[in-house]
Structure formats: structure tokens, C-alpha cells
Design a protein around this nucleic acid. Structure first.
Lengths: 211, 211
DNA sequence: ATCAATATACTGGAAAACCAGTAGAAAAAA
DNA sequence: TTTTTTCTACTGGTTTTCCAGTATATTGAT
């Protein structure tokens, strides 16, 4: 069964990348490259007039940053599938992009197969992330929940209660121990985690997703 | 081109679901159902001896909960693709499952097409999430960053600084304003967000990802 | 130009958190 | 069993946060 090709838009400020993509995708009749733009502004005004199925979006545009672009594009056309593209990859940026609604993410060393696969899947409303991207994301997750100094069970428990915004007295009540003890735990926690107030304590707790 | 079928394992404690899956997948020669289990323990001991390509994993098993199962399975066989299955869907659980390494997630009303697609994609190392699941995840994201009462620019700024663990005086210095003013902002923040200490303030800030 | 919202700043007092040091009981590890 | 770690609890004192109320300058919108 032969569907009609997926209308695809390339947004990248590097002519080489544009040509490369056109060549890589040119042979495949499942994908049709409609046109391309080299900046965000032109892309957005185009989308107000016309539309496409999928956008291959460079994350480092000269005028508008990738994360914002995603929001703006989806604001104009909610059902366009966006695939992020970048050469290197910072987990936090990828995470933000995903949160804002990209359906796929590829590094620029992606193969033609990967590209077509990504475009097809995203067009069908599914996610597609290149294997390198997945690795990066996985690493960033494990890294977070890793290296917090060895806290005792009790300390962890107290920490979560602190992080829930409970006061020393409340915690003491809840654990049937003296407020003074809770204080001691708190102090030990602060020392172990090298901070000097409950605020930072909570920040850490949340980051290491203890809560 | 005809590949050899993807070896799939079903883990679910509802016989009806098992039979249903077998029927739905039985016609498709891209997928071969190796066997099935009705609880977590049996599944894990099987995996110590033998392996499969993809597991369709019910999230509500009688003995071991879904989130733990994912970790345990990947501990034994890191390169099995796991697809979560559940009837209803709580965002937080799905999120946890993803964090622990599931590559796909479907509701039990998935069509045969979706099932095969999910299995194929996951087997290739890609993600696959059913459209309803995606909707649920998207909602939960927007919900989080949604309804925080309208804070003023300054208040948001102060909030982020508080959330970074900075003390009132530090913040005052940084913003070139009086500590008393910072205090006022803090108090307004607490009032608007309906909490009674900086701790909870930070918790909220983090949850609504203001930082 | 005017009105509302925001940002700024204060007083004064109560509550909670933070700091430093000590120490006994219970549990876990050697 | 002995040793170490963890959990418990205290004294005494300093700092910071929290609460309530007030008030003025600045900014933004109509």
C-alpha cells in the first residue's frame, strides 16, 4: 500500500545540513520535502499561511531558540510533528524540548533510515528518539539519582518529611520522637549534604528525587 | 523482506487479557508469543534461564508492582524491550515506569495495529506510546506548570532565588533591595501559594518547574 | 491623566530554624 | 561479643523566618 508522501519542512541555518537532508531523503518516496527555512521568523510566518506534516527543526537557530520555537509552532499548528535536530546534545535542552512537545529528536549524524523512520513515526503521532539521544537521556536520569552521600534510613525519612514542608514539631509528632531529635537529624543532613538551610536541603531532595 | 518474528512474552494475571492478546497478535507473523506468566515471580525466574525480545507487562500484578518489575527485569536482561500495559492510567505511574526503563506503554484497549507497531518499534530500540497515553502524559505536564496563581515577575524571581537555597539577606544583596522587601515578597508568595514556610514554597517551585 | 497593580520599605513581636557540643540507648556490623 | 553506627535526646545561645499591619514610590493599563 502506497500512502501519499509526508510533507516535511526543514528548518536549519546551515545550507550544508539542508542539502544533506534533501539528498538523504530525496530517494525515499515516503517523504516529500516541501521547502526549507533558515530562521525561526520566516518559518512561523510561513506556518500562518500554509502547513506541513512534519518539521525537522534545528535547535540552534540564529533568531529564536529551539525550545521556544516548538511552543510557537504548536501554537499555530497543534498537530504538526516536530523532530528536533542538533549536532551535540545537552540533556536539559532535550528534556525541555520534549516537555514542550517535540515528538522526536535526532543528532545530525542520523542515517537516512533513522530519518525516514523518525518522520514516519512522528507523522503517525508516535515518538521517535535516536539511539544516541536515548543514551544521553538515560545517563542524565541515572546521574541525578546517583551520588548522594550515604544517608541513614532515618535521615532519608526525615529528609522527605522536611521536603514535604513539614515543621520540626510536626515531624517529631509523626515519628513519635522528640523535636530535638528531629533537629539533630536535620543538622546531620545539612552537614552531610553540605548546605546550611532547609531550603537547599529540599532542593537537593527534589533533584535526587527522594520525594 | 521477512525478518524472523519478534519473541514476545506476556505477563498479566487476567486470563482474558492473555487470550485477547494472543488472538490479536496471532495473525501477525512479525510477532511470536513465546509464552505467558500470571505473576512477577515466575516471570523473573523464567528470565534467569531464558530470554525474549519484548515483554508486554501488566502494571498491576498480584505479587510485584509494575514499577519494580521493570527494574528487576532490566537487571536480569538489560536489552529486553518492555511495554507497559494497564486498563486505566495514572500519569505518575507511567512516568515512573518510563524513568525505570519501559520503552512503550499502552492501554488495554489498544488495537492490533498499535500492538504490533509498539512491539516492532520497541524491539528496534525505539519508544512507542499509545495516543491515549501521550494525551495523559501531556495533560499531566501542562497541569503541573499550569495553575499556579499569577505571581508577579519580581515574586517569581524571588521565589527562584529562595528555591536556590539563598537566604533573605543574600537575595536582598543580589537584587539591591532591602531584606525587609524580600521578606515582604516571601510573605506574599506564601500567601498566594497557600503555604506557611519556605520549605513548601520550594517544593512548589520545583514541582511547577520554576527552577 | 488616573486608577490599579506592583515593588519597595518599615515596626515590633512570636516562632522556628540554625549552631556547637555532649551523651546514652539501640541496632548493626565486626 | 565487642565495636561501630545509628538513633535518640539534651543545654544554651544566635540567627532567621514568620506574622500582622502600614505605607509610599513606581509602573502599567485604560
Amino acid at each position: 500500500m502506497q500512502h501519499k508522501p509526508i510533507n516535511t519542512l526543514i528548518v536549519d541555518d546551515h545550507p550544508m545540513v539542508i542539502e544533506g537532508l534533501k539528498t538523504l531523503l530525496g530517494d525515499d518516496d515516503r517523504v516529500a520535502i516541501k521547502t526549507h527555512f533558515v530562521n525561526g521568523t520566516d518559518t512561523l510566518s510561513f506556518l500562518k499561511e500554509d502547513t506541513v506534516d512534519v518539521i525537522l527543526l534545528d535547535v540552534n537557530l540564529p533568531d529564536i531558540n529551539g525550545v521556544e520555537m516548538v511552543t510557537k509552532i504548536l501554537n499555530i499548528r497543534a498537530n504538526i510533528g516536530i523532530i528536533g535536530l542538533s549536532t551535540y546534545s545537552e540533556p536539559s535542552i532535550i528534556n525541555q524540548m520534549i516537555k514542550n512537545g517535540v515528538k522526536g529528536y535526532l543528532l545530525k549524524n542520523a542515517t537516512a533510515d533513522e530519518l525516514v523512520n523518525a518522520i514516519t513515526q512522528v507523522h503517525q503521532g508516535n515518538f521517535y528518539f535516536g539511539s544516541e539521544v536515548q543514551k544521553i537521556l538515560a545517563d542524565s536520569v541515572t546521574q541525578e539519582s546517583r551520588d548522594l552521600p550515604k544517608l541513614t534510613r532515618r535521615e532519608k525519612h526525615v529528609l522527605t518529611l522536611i521536603a514535604e514542608g513539614k515543621t520540626t514539631n510536626t515531624i517529631a509528632d509523626e515519628l513519635f520522637i522528640s523535636p530535638l531529635t528531629v533537629e539533630t537529624h536535620r543538622r546531620n543532613l545539612m552537614q552531610k549534604l553540605e548546605v546550611s538551610n532547609a531550603a537547599s536541603l529540599i532542593k537537593i531532595a527534589v533533584e535526587k528525587q527522594l520525594i
